[in-house]
């Protein structure tokens, strides 16, 4: 195993982690923090924040970068929307990120559960903003309409990597389809912020990164996140390189100069990491 660069250091406090994990266990909830083996789990749990993974912990796809288990997921839990709302209340979250494994097995791709969870959060925590980090839902516009109609403040869908590496990294997804999801959502609800993210360190070139930025910007994306790919295990897609903090600063500058409204670019930046900062950052521009 290649030694980790000094900027990939994170803090871990067992008590804080166990406290949030206990709450999730009590309410039968999953977090992508745990399922994706997120390096920021310790920091986020310590701050009493987490990203909820609704619709189970097993995914119907098998992307080669991702730590979420591929399998045959269970039907949606009807109590989940209320349980998420209860956890949001107990954690006192002002901004919630909801995500899911890809549910190609469900006719609506899980859109109904997103809408129900949003509604439950709105009912019990009226001041809380919500970000939905969705799968491509096979570009089913009816499913996307269901999510949009629930009026999340931010709609996020990750392109994950440059066009050239899509097949190798996320074989059951499609770059153009992901762009189409982002474009459709923006056209349907222009006031809703849209967001996407990608990883570096999979073997992409600077030119390919720039082309990706141009493509997602053309799809109307407001917020961009850029982070280091970290290989979850030797069985996952091989790591090509560690980009330096200076590289990430350069990507950020480049993206902002192209016209994104907010860019989070850092080695440990993740789609939902400090997501409220992006929302506030965009609103400060108004």
């Amino acid at each position: 195993m290649e030694r980790k660069p000094e900027w990939l250091r994170v803090r871990y406090n067992q008590e804080a982690v166990e406290e949030v994990a206990r709450l999730m266990g009590e309410l039968k909830l999953n977090t992508v923090c745990k399922e994706a083996n997120c390096p920021n789990l310790g920091e986020c749990y310590r701050k009493h924040t987490a990203t909820f993974m609704i619709l189970g912990s097993e995914c119907t796809r098998n992307c080669r970068f991702c730590n979420v288990t591929a399998g045959h997921p269970l039907p949606p839990d009807p109590d989940e929307p209320e349980n998420v709302a209860a956890a949001v209340k107990r954690l006192g979250l002002r901004h919630v990120v909801l995500t899911c494994p890809t549910r190609d097995d469900l006719p609506d791709g899980g859109a109904g559960q997103f809408a129900a969870t949003l509604e439950a959060i709105r009912a019990s925590c009226p001041g809380t903003t919500v970000e939905t980090l969705i799968s491509d839902m096979k570009l089913d516009t009816k499913a996307l309409d269901t999510v949009i109609a629930a009026r999340p403040e931010v709609l996020n869908h990750n392109v994950e990597t440059v066009r050239e590496l899509q097949k190798a990294v996320r074989p059951q997804a499609d770059y153009q389809r992901s762009l189409a999801v982002l474009r459709y959502c923006k056209e349907k609800a222009p006031a809703m912020l849209t967001k996407t993210g990608f990883m570096v360190g999979l073997g992409e070139t600077e030119e390919q990164i720039e082309a990706l930025m141009d493509d997602v910007l053309a799809a109307g994306v407001d917020i961009l996140t850029i982070g280091q790919y970290l290989q979850p295990s030797p069985q996952h897609y091989p790591l090509a390189r560690y980009a330096t903090p200076e590289d990430f600063a350069r990507y950020k500058e480049k993206a902002l100069s192209k016209g994104f409204r907010y860019v989070a670019s850092a080695p440990l930046a993740r789609s939902s990491y400090k997501a409220w900062e992006a929302l506030e950052g965009v609103h400060d521009l108004h």
């Binding site: 994170v10 979850p232 440990l268």
Partner: peptide, 11 residues
């Protein structure tokens, strides 16, 4: 402690 993804500073 170094794990697959990062170095964890245990508090």
């Amino acid at each position: 402690i170094e794990t697959d993804k990062v170095v964890n500073q245990i508090e």
